[in-house]
Nucleic acid binder design. Structure first.
Length: 877
RNA sequence: GCGCAAUUAACUCAGUUGGUAGAGUGUUUCCGUCACAUGGAAAAAGUCAGGGGUUCGAGUCCCUUAUUGCGCACCA
């Protein structure tokens, strides 16, 4: 295959993906001879477009999945999309409004028809975008949270929980979004700090004996007050508890009551109680049997019966209330006050806590939370990094019942039917034909749908076929790892854990790998409103999916947020270009050459060195990936490929490749191709496209790199001793280059070097390497006494290096260089001596470490002596 | 208020059971060399936020302070 001179991902990524898909490499089947490895995708919303958060999430998942597949697991990555009940409905309604349509005008059926059409259109869009990323999902199993399979599971779970008494319908206070027109769960409320006021309002006693002043942030809810509460221990109000107050404006008679909930040191120590519109007041109301007066409609306007207030929006009502109180002389003062206000996580409208007009459905959480907490404590499911377990505990330990009914149309309709005649409630999977109690056929299904997260919670098993006992479920459940960002631990992860335990009797995944968010160059969250989002599709178009993936994986730590910038992708693209060109070099030379067997072929010193390094990289990268340390793995691969394979090994073997020695060429190319192939395999999970592309050109290629066997370190390639001594030669080469740069010798100028060394034989063996890589034409071995006067020198592990440079010799530069070396050595010696003179170190540190220090110390002493000797000589000149 | 992170080179970040601090980008000098200028060679650059402790040895473990960010809970 011809390879272009530069790496051009756009020219082949699509073809490669088609090739994989056509051959069904992503498809997984239960295989008793293999171990399963299962990952379910966090289903992206059908309304969504691929953003950087997805890109990071998909990159990590695909990396792990490809790695496991190559390791020989029967690997299933199960894809799907989420119906995203509230988010989607909001968008559809918005689109309809532009056409002058409303939900009501279309009716439930008409609306749902539209919604499904929307799903067809946009659900496919996100799936296509995932494919650009290179996701190796089993698309044959593509699921949707509202498909028949999932619907069946949802109904089964609902009925099961109801029968068990864990699902109940209650008239409790809920978070209500006036904009979306539905109740939402506690988890769906986001608190935002808001600058507001604290209004101090006078409530007079009925008997004219004075007044109580309450402080409130919501004067308009005064309309619904049914009491004022103080702390019974508060001396300011002693003797007043039980007296009757007149509610200003409304003139309702309400009681001053005592309740421990009231803090004495906040505000005035007196709290107005509005049971229908505040969660705390609601509790107080229950304790004291207070009337619950609802004053807001579903759209947060004031209900009928309150005169001028009726019909006003809550904020307009607040203004009017302030005015009325002022006029009536009830307003004591208004002070600036900043507090947290709850907002809907979807539309950011300030939520209203409202006592449900319709009853809401709740899941009783305590019994479900308990075993779910235990499972994480027992490490049946492990959070990675571990610290996220405490976030999980914190939430689960303080969990309240989960409000799951939503006053929406797009979603799983609640499987409950009510008898219009006798009021009986029937909860069952299929619609009843008549009332189970009175036999009436006048039945109505509950109008509401379920929280989106109710179906997501079942994802790891509903997608595998539950409640049916499928082969998939049997083989692939529980899944191995769930990979997601930390912002949906509550919404999703926690709910999957308790659902898995409750319905499958087993946790849904063994590991939860939590990653952070992708931020912009300045560390800001990417958001639409800021307009600072970087579009991954654009990055793919400009740099290729591999560059995007590598940039997201490279140098990141699990759980941490990561910044994304164009310079980072560019440097990653450059790295891939480097691999591309190194491969081009190897393939060019390997053309028409018959390769030998890597295990038996004769190896040069450079070969042994690179194989030794390769072994290390294989071992460490495998270990890193096993522990999900993708950042570390990519770091090591980057360094190995660039700094060792390209910068050194390829340069080292050039003299052989350009020589006429066919045997040496053959063996060198065998190693060269082997190392390259191994590199490609190690990199494939992160940068799948380019590695496949190059792999297909290798003379040793198999069908696809996707199914190639994951590399293992090879005992025979240990070569520790050879590698170590070879690195001394590399140091010598660096020293020569250093001197050359120091005296500004032009690179093409060949030089002669002199060495005082005890290992002439070894240096001679390496002389070709030295000559080629350091621009040397002649190496002369001399005795100490033979060192000429006019040379530049450096002291190396191999021995004293002396370069006669004629006019270019610059004693001052050399002295400066040697002095820097001297300082370094002195510091080193001091460190080493301090350690070895420390009896604690010698007796307690590992023996190998002590020995290492001893030999280092000896070598350093020798080197220092040589430096000092040389310096003395230079100064005496 | 409670909890969790982060604080390492000019910038952005890594740093594996504690054993001589690393990379990318940027900077300086040189180089159109036949894989690659999306490149090569060389170099400069760090009191690992401050303080204490444990240890033979701490960027790493413990305590504490500061700054920043995040999560949870909120006093109406």
């Amino acid at each position: 295959m011809e390879m272009d001179k530069t790496y051009q991902p756009a020219s082949f990524e699509k073809d490669i993906y088609d090739f994989w898909q056509k051959n069904k490499y992503f498809h997984a089947v239960p295989d008793k001879d293999k171990k399963p490895f299962t990952v379910v995708i966090p289903p992206p919303n059908i309304t969504g477009q691929l953003h950087m958060g997805h890109a990071l999430n998909e990159t990590i998942q695909d990396t792990i999945v490809r790695f496991k597949r190559m390791q020989g697991y029967s690997t299933l990555w199960l894809p799907g999309v989420d119906h995203a009940s509230i988010a989607t409905e909001v968008k559809i309604v918005e689109a309809m409004r532009k056409e002058g349509l409303t939900k009501e005008s279309l009716g439930r059926e008409g609306f749902l028809k539209r919604a499904w059409a929307w799903k067809e259109k946009y659900g496919n869009r996100i799936v296509e975008q995932l494919k650009y990323m290179g996701n190796s999902c089993d698309w044959d199993r593509l699921a949707f949270t509202m498909d028949d399979k999932c619907n069946k599971a949802v109904k089964r779970v609902f009925v099961h929980l109801y029968d068990k008494g864990l699902m109940y319908r209650g008239n409790r206070i809920v978070n209500w979004c006036p904009c979306c027109g539905t109740a939402i769960s506690d988890a769906e409320v986001e608190y935002e700090e808001q600058a507001s006021f604290l209004w101090h309002i006078r409530y007079p006693f009925k008997d004219g004996t004075g007044e109580v002043v309450v402080a409130t942030t919501r004067p308009e809810t005064l309309l619904g007050d049914t009491a004022v509460a103080v702390n019974p221990k508060d001396s300011r109000y002693s003797g007043m508890i039980g007296k009757t107050l007149i509610l200003p404006i409304v003139n309702r008679e309400i009681e001053l009551l005592g309740d421990d909930y009231v803090e004495t040191d906040f505000g005035t120590g007196a709290v107005k109680i509005t049971p229908a519109h505040d969660p705390n007041d609601y509790e107080v109301g229950l304790r004291h049997n207070l009337k619950q007066i609802r004053i807001f409609n579903d759209n947060a306007t004031v209900v009928d019966g309150y005169g001028e207030f009726s019909g006003l929006d809550r904020f307009a009502a607040r203004k009017l209330m302030e005015q009325k109180l002022q006029e009536g002389g009830f307003l004591v003062k208004k002070e600036a006050y900043t507090h947290n206000v709850g907002a809907c996580y979807r539309c950011h409208t300030t939520i209203e806590t409202i006592l449900g007009k319709n009853q809401q459905w709740f899941v009783k959480m305590q019994p479900l939370a308990k075993p779910a907490i235990e499972a994480v404590k027992n490490k049946e499911t492990k959070f990675i990094p571990e610290r996220f377990a405490s976030v999980y505990y914190n939430w689960m330990n303080n969990i309240k019942d989960w409000c799951v009914s939503r006053q929406l149309w797009w979603g799983h309709r609640i499987p409950a039917w009510y008898c219009a005649d006798c009021g009986e409630t029937m909860v069952q999977e299929d619609a009843p034909t008549k009332c189970s109690k009175c036999g009436s056929t006048n039945l109505n299904q509950d109008e509401d749908v379920l929280d989106t997260w109710f179906s997501s919670a079942l994802w790891p098993f509903s997608t595998l076929g539950w409640p049916d006992k499928t082969e998939d479920l049997e083989y692939f459940y529980p899944t191995n790892v769930l990979i997601t960002a930390y912002d949906i631990i509550f919404f999703w992860v926690a709910r999957m854990i308790f659902s898995g335990i409750e319905h499958m009797g087993e946790v849904p995944f063994k590991d939860v790998l939590i990653h952070g968010l992708v931020r912009d160059e300045q560390g800001r969250k990417m958001s639409k409103s800021l307009g600072n989002g970087i579009d991954p599709l654009e990055i793919i178009a400009n740099y290729g999916a591999d560059s995007l993936r590598f940039a997201l994986a490279y140098g990141t730590a699990p759980g941490n947020d990561t910044r994304f910038s164009n310079t980072k992708v560019e440097s990653c693209r450059n790295f891939i270009n480097k691999i591309w060109n190194a491969s081009r070099f190897v393939l060019m030379n390997a053309e028409n050459v018959e390769l030998g067997d890597i295990l038996t072929v004769k190896k040069s010193l450079a070969d042994k060195w690179i194989l030794n390094r390769l072994n290390k990289v294989v071992r460490e990268v495998t270990k890193n990936l096993e522990k999900y340390e993708i950042g570390l793995a990519t770091n090591k691969l980057y360094d190995f490929v660039w700094s060792e394979f390209c910068d050194w090994y390829i340069e080292l073997v050039k003299p052989i490749l350009y020589s006429a020695n066919e045997d040496a060429k053959k063996s060198t190319l065998t190693v060269l191709v082997y190392v390259l192939e191994t590199i490609l395999k190690l990199l494939h999970p992160v940068i799948p496209f380019v590695t496949e592309k190059i792999y297909q050109s290798l003379p040793t290629k198999g069908e696809t790199i996707m199914l190639a066997t994951w590399p293992k370190p090879i005992q025979k390639f240990a070569y520790n001793k050879e590698a170590k001594s070879f690195e001394n030669i590399m140091e010598l080469i660096r020293s020569i280059r250093n001197i050359r740069a120091d005296v500004k010798l032009i690179p093409s100028k060949k030089i002669e070097i002199m060495l005082v060394t005890e290992d002439q034989k070894f240096v001679t063996k390496c002389s070709d390497y030295i000559k080629k890589l350091a621009g040397v034409e002649k190496i002369e071995f001399i005795a100490n006494e033979q060192i000429p006067k006019n040379v530049q020198s450096a002291m190396t592990k191999v021995g004293g290096l002396y370069i006669p440079l004629g006019d270019l010799v610059d004693a001052e530069k050399e002295i400066a260089r040697l002095n820097i070396e001297k300082e370094k050595m002195l510091k080193e010696l001091e460190r080493g001596e301090k350690m070895l003179n420390n009896p604690g170190f010698v007796s307690r540190a590992p023996q190998t470490l002590v020995d290492n220090e001893k030999s280092k110390l000896a070598a350093n002493r020798e080197k220092l002596d040589k430096i000092l000797e040389r310096l003395q000589m230079l100064e005496s000149l």
